[in-house]
Design a protein around this nucleic acid. Structure first.
Lengths: 174, 174
DNA sequence: AAAGATTGAGAAATCAATCTTA
DNA sequence: TAAGATTGATTTCTCAATCTTT
């Protein structure tokens, strides 16, 4: 753990925290992704899209709204939707009111996929995270994340579009 | 925030924590990556490799050791090294003792790059994370991450290779 | 055969350019 | 011109196959 010579690095406590945080991110996502792929045939990205759609009353959303909810670039979402459409999980449909726009509509197969995957995924999230930490730690984790998110919004304010509303990402790809 | 009908989802507190956690991951990494790319011309992945190398006395490491430290698949690392080698940041060299193996050696240009990038990156990490949270929160964050990592090791135990030692990821790609 | 590493093909993410309607 | 969305090219990641040395 030597620092790069002549470079002000984090102190030891911070460094431990930072490395642990980075490690958790990649490893936990990898593990959750692996399990979902095996058990349900969905990637984290697939699942994130399906969850957002399934939360909507009509099982349909405007594409831009979906992009903002996921905080994805619209081109990334578009490619993702194309793949999912080909697999029969969802469909695109035109928007009457604003003919530039489009809807994504959850299909029965997509509905089944997310309903089957969700409980297993929740189980995994509990198993790896919530079962391992106290209620107080959960509260602190939330505070920390929200503090960072607030700080990020600041730096982000006054930049071009693509930045979503305040709502957080869900199914957890990327 | 309605749950998928008939699916046991997380409770509200947990859900807020989980979504905030996922959101922080993607947004913070994206922001740090953007700043590093702009300021130093390095991606998160580039930086992670360079930091690991620069921490070693000889500025050289066995490739497998590096893969384990980063917790990357060896093929991912190999491709990454090829790109970085082409940019003159590092070089590969053969290993006398075990002629199957190889070393990666940091080049002057790579050394310069990491020395220039590190303070800016540390600054950003402070700005977005450590300046926003208390020492107590840092401690709790570390505890949480380590609890999850321990749990992950369990599930991982008894699986095939590729799994690194306990050391955590650093420069923070993926 | 197993360990250390590379390669090439395919999947996914990013970037800039494009297309259509408002 | 700007908003909503798609497309194609490029880059990066992943997976399986391969190559060399032990």
């Amino acid at each position: 753990m030597e620092a790069v010579e002549s470079v002000p690095w984090l102190n030891e406590v911070e460094q431990r925290a930072w490395r642990a945080f980075l490690s958790v991110q990649s490893r936990l996502n990898a593990q959750l992704g692996r399990e979902m792929q095996e058990q349900s045939g969905l990637s984290n990205a697939d699942f994130a899209v399906l969850v957002r759609l399934s939360e909507h009353p009509d099982q349909r959303m405007r594409i831009l709204e979906l992009a903002r909810a996921l905080q994805w670039e619209k081109s990334r979402l578009s490619h993702q939707l194309t793949r999912m459409e080909q697999r029969g999980l969802l469909e695109r449909s035109n928007c009457r009111e604003d003919r530039r726009g489009a809807f994504v509509v959850l299909q029965p197969q997509g509905r089944e996929a997310v309903e089957s995957a969700a409980p297993k995924h929740v189980d995994a999230v509990r198993r790896y995270l919530f079962d391992e930490i106290s209620a107080e730690q959960v509260a602190t984790l939330t505070e920390i994340c929200q503090a960072v998110l607030s700080r990020l919004e600041l730096g982000c304010a006054g930049r071009e579009g693509e930045c979503g509303e305040s709502d957080a990402a869900c199914g957890g790809a990327d």
